[in-house]
Amino acid sequence: MNRAMLDLWVGIFVVAGIGALMFLALKVGSMNTVDAKESYQVTALFENIGGLKARAPVKSAGVVVGRVSSISFDDKTYEAEVTFSLDKRYSFPTDTTASILTSGLLGEQYIGLEAGGESVKLKNGDRLKLTQSAVVLENLIGQFLYSKAQEGPQQEGTTNEVQ
């Protein structure tokens, strides 16, 4: 094995290895993590976040616009405080509603943003006032059974008995 062949093979190996790394980084993984400089932080309080996790996506109209950066418990209001970072490219009015939604029936949970009509835009450190908690399946089933029991003898129950 002469020197030139050896160099060539090592070159092929290194290029292939870096190519594999690039493939992993670009094709397999998502490198478009919203990083600190290109984003702004917004918090929101939820009564119940269900199964929401840090790094879950934040979507608006189905488009990913940011990610959940941290979740903590606020012991004054006894609510969950969720901080998420939003992409600088997108701005939302201050009366935007944040709700915790589930993709599919059993899929992962994410935060859905629905813009309001206010003209003032959200900025770094703002808090969303309008939130909607996660739908907890157990509660839903419980309510359903309760309402069925309420309906019981009557044929048609009134739905507004159920919250």
Partner: peptide, 19 residues
């Protein structure tokens, strides 16, 4: 197959830690 993979595999958490 590819889009779910891209949505769930994170560069820092998964790929960089693997490296």
């Amino acid at each position: 197959f590819w889009s779910q993979m891209q949505a769930k595999v994170d560069f820092e958490e998964d790929i960089l830690n693997g490296v």
